[in-house]
Design a protein around this nucleic acid. Structure first.
Lengths: 349, 349
DNA sequence: CTGAAAGCGCTAACAC
DNA sequence: GTGTTAGCGCTTTCAG
């Protein structure tokens, strides 16, 4: 009965060629073309050749949308990213490479002022990503849970106690502890912490700082801060003048850098007047002018493991929750030094 | 006659609900649901209410893939981005916000080692982006032309002489000229340029540097460099020792920062032993420790205009090619100063 | 105001 | 080997 063989006007206009156009031009059926294009066994060598040639000549490209609809698979892995965050940028590059090698594709969901985390994740899911990689998500756990409940997800850089979500993160507690120990061993007794704000990672680092100080029998001083240079600089305003703070452990490098800026423009030199340590070992920290003592958390390794975890999940190679905690490494540079005024109380003086 | 009312087994399994499930649950046809969901006039208030409620309750989300296929529109704008480039990150955030407000969505195409520019653009086109925003593309013009010939495209940050491609960029020539003039007015006579490599922007800046030097009757010295700190640092090796270079105009801030690093670790202080200027006015440049003299190229304005250009194209509001050149602004900071050794040959001595 | 039916471009059985 | 035929989930005329 199908006699409406009239090929719906294959105008060579602006319309991009479809599989039907290629089939017509090659004198075969669209089914065959589909097989050739997806490299599945079946078509003869001759047909394959011809179809490929025709497709090439017509500048044919498969319509991914249609393909996905038909296949019910996307081989897409969604990654949420804060574009202005260099650390995320580095991770994303690493991730892309590994995902690529595994035969999947990444799609980046940028988190911005108009596009918060929730919306970003929703968009990624709408794109039918088969798995999600969340870079340092800041959403409340419960909310996150309901959002990603049907998608294999791995969370990078933040602890998350969800049964379905894998976690790959650095050992923030250890990192902060090392910094505090380092400062104490330099002779500091009054060490403040510039807080990272409301996020979970901030809470972890803050807790680790408090614990370390307690262990040393020292008083913890937490200054309101944040993730950016500006917020780090603002912390300067909250530095209590009476308590003789001689060192600061900042939430991250950016905050540390901002704080240094504020300190030095007020005439307090670093490390002479104040020692400052960061976290991340960013490019900026490495620059000799900054020479920031900081904590490295091996982003490449994190990316590798995170991608591995999702891919394993997708391949059904593991069901149970996985939590990978990577060791951190203290990097001592020039922004920390012994306090200028030798403390009368130092034991070995 | 339609008596196959058996709703194709609406198992509440893992499968996400489709419009058919919603329709069944609300006791209407899928067509009606579609209309309600897309907010088109027609459905009665009561129906609208009910359908919306049901959809909400079922946790229904439109399948974007299917929607796009059916609509033949995606309202997607593709943006190529170098994730590790902070400047791109800033631009992307800006772009996302504006695109969003215009009722479109952005999809980011990351350019990485395994995913070069061509592939990134192809991916974006495969996603059926209706328009492309290329951030500082480095591909040869001709190749680019054939790639994007069917997609409205605007190129940000680089001149591009393609009839179909809009351009929004900063006035690099002016920026570099201002830097050279500034250095000359400080008394420098031997000013080198750290090249930005093979890209087009690099060629423009190099050319502008050469022209400016010529105008001042000075000899141009171009040092091989690149876009990164590492490459900027490497330029140090090529600094001719005999010619008494006292100032360097770097391709961008990153190269400048790298160069400063190399200089200072060799005992040459900036600006005392050497003046160094960058380009971009990045966060790093602004930091007092770096205090880099540089050129600001208003990224926000660039993003705004670029998005405006694509949207106008998409709305058919302009056909003719548009090239918008934004003025730059010289930002003088502490990395440039008068040469230490007063030059014996200065005219007015 | 609502329902039926014809696709969007492609894949995947299943025939021939 | 190759062609045919259903869909994938949604939008969109076009009738009622």
């Amino acid at each position: 009965m199908p006699d409406h063989t009239a090929p719906a006007s294959p105008r060579p206009g602006r319309r991009r060629p479809t599989i039907l156009d290629v089939a017509a031009a090659a004198g075969v059926s669209k089914g065959l073309v589909s097989k050739v294009l997806s490299g599945s066994a079946g078509p003869s060598a001759a047909t394959t050749q011809r179809v490929l040639a025709v497709a090439e000549r017509m500048g044919y490209r498969k319509d991914r949308t249609a393909t996905l609809l038909a296949q019910r698979r996307t081989r897409l892995i969604g990654v949420t990213i804060l574009p202005s965050n260099v650390y995320h940028g580095e991770l994303a590059e690493e991730i892309q490479a590994i995902v690529d090698a595994a035969g999947y594709e990444t799609v980046l969901g940028a988190i911005t002022a108009t596009h918060d985390e929730r919306r970003s994740i929703e968009t990624l899911i709408d794109f039918r990503c088969e798995a999600l990689l969340l870079l340092g998500p800041t959403m409340p756990e419960a909310e996150l849970a309901s959002l990603v409940e049907n998608v294999p997800t791995v969370c990078v850089g933040r602890p998350l106690n969800l049964p379905e979500v894998d976690v790959v993160r650095a050992d923030d507690e250890q990192g902060i502890t090392d910094v505090v120990d380092h400062l104490v061993s330099l002779g500091h007794r009054h060490i403040a912490h510039v807080d990272g704000g409301a996020g979970h990672i901030a809470a972890v680092r803050r807790g680790a700082y408090r614990a370390a100080m307690r262990r040393h029998g020292l008083e913890a001083v937490v200054l309101p801060g944040g993730l950016t240079e500006r917020q780090g600089a603002a912390a300067f305003e909250h530095l209590p003048s009476g308590t003789g703070i001689t060192a600061v452990v900042a939430f991250n490098d950016r905050a540390a850098v901002g704080l240094i800026e504020a300190l030095e423009s007020s005439g307090i030199r670093v490390p002479d007047g104040m020692s400052v340590a960061g976290f991340d070992d960013s490019l900026m920290a490495r620059h000799p002018r900054m020479a920031l003592t900081t904590v490295s958390q091996s982003p490449i390794e994190q990316a590798r493991l995170a991608v591995q975890a999702v891919i394993d999940r997708l391949n059904g190679e593991h069901q149970e929750r996985r939590e990978i905690v990577l060791p951190t490494r203290l990097v001592v540079r020039g922004s920390t030094a012994a306090p200028r005024t030798p403390l009368a109380l130092r034991r070995n003086s």
